[in-house]
Amino acid sequence: MRTNFYKPFIGFAILLLTISCKTEPEAIDFGKDQCSFCMMNIVDKTHAAQYVTKKGKQFKFDSIECMVNDLSEKNEDEMPIMLVANYANPGEMIDAQTASYLISTAIKSPMGANLSAVSTTEKANELQQKYSGDIYTWQTLKQRLSDK
């Protein structure tokens, strides 16, 4: 008889644990959220970035290079979600590991790396034709930024 009394409480506890461990990204509140790396306000919808840890902790950045620098000290396997702003569609966040990147002095980014991301290699080629610069994958970008 007594176990029937506890069943609703056990179910509720399990529900709370499940909800509290979500690893979904929160939307960046542009103009209010601060960069987790350099502490500047995040205002640029074309260069922002973010990642979420396995435990659901949110880290938001004003530029892709801030996120890359922050991740250089961490284990990426602990970050199931890594997103970057899609330069071709401001405000849209895309997967950092599958995005294509362009470093071009013609496109200024908040921290001066002149780094932008787009969803496909074709889009990166279009941007390169328009603005010049060099195209990178996630792996080659991390290598390039770690060489500085």
Rank of each mutant, 00 (worst) to 15 (best):
A49H: 10
V52W: 08
K148Y: 12
W138Q: 06
A88Q: 13
N41L: 06
G31T: 09
M39D: 12
A13R: 00
D62V: 02
N69A: 11
V118N: 02
Q58W: 11
S63W: 05
I14K: 01
M67A: 08
C21F: 10
Q58H: 15
S104Y: 00
A117Q: 01
T18I: 12
L16Q: 08
N114S: 14
I135N: 05
N89E: 13
P110C: 01
K54F: 06
R2I: 14
T23W: 04
A85S: 14
A27G: 13
T23S: 13
C21R: 11
T105K: 14
S63L: 06
I10K: 00
D70K: 08
T105C: 07
Q128V: 07
T53L: 05
K123D: 09
Q139R: 09
A48T: 04
D62G: 03
A99S: 12
C38A: 03
F12V: 05
N4H: 14
I10Q: 00
A117G: 02
V43K: 11
C35Y: 04
G31M: 08
K142N: 11
H47A: 12
L17Q: 06
K54W: 04
P80I: 10
T53F: 01
V84C: 02
I94L: 10
D44E: 08
M39N: 14
E126R: 13
M79N: 13
K60R: 15
T98V: 09
T137E: 04
M82A: 12
P110T: 01
Q129V: 08
I28Q: 01
T3D: 14
A48L: 02
M67P: 05
S132I: 07
M40I: 03
M82S: 11
T23L: 03
L17V: 09
I42H: 03
W138F: 15
S104E: 11
I14P: 04
D77K: 15
P90G: 02
D77G: 15
E126N: 09
S119L: 10
E73I: 09
N86R: 11
K74C: 10
T53W: 04
D147F: 07
C66M: 04
D29L: 13
L16S: 01
A27Q: 13
G91A: 10
I107A: 02
D29P: 01
P110H: 06
G91L: 08
E122A: 14
L17M: 13
G11W: 11
K142I: 03
G112P: 06
N125Q: 14
T137P: 04
I94H: 11
Q97R: 15
L145E: 00
N114C: 02
N4W: 15
K7E: 13
A13F: 12
S20L: 09
C66Y: 06
T18F: 08
D62K: 01
L145N: 06
D62F: 03
K22R: 07
N89T: 13
S72C: 08
H47P: 01
T3K: 11
A124L: 11
D62Y: 05
T98A: 06
Q139I: 10
E24T: 15
K130I: 10
T121L: 14
A48C: 01
W138S: 12
F9R: 08
S63P: 07
S63F: 01
R144I: 03
S20A: 13
D33H: 02
Q128A: 07
V43W: 02
A106G: 09
L71W: 09
G112R: 05
C21T: 10
I64G: 05
I103W: 00
M39W: 04
M1E: 15
N89I: 13
D70I: 03
K142R: 14
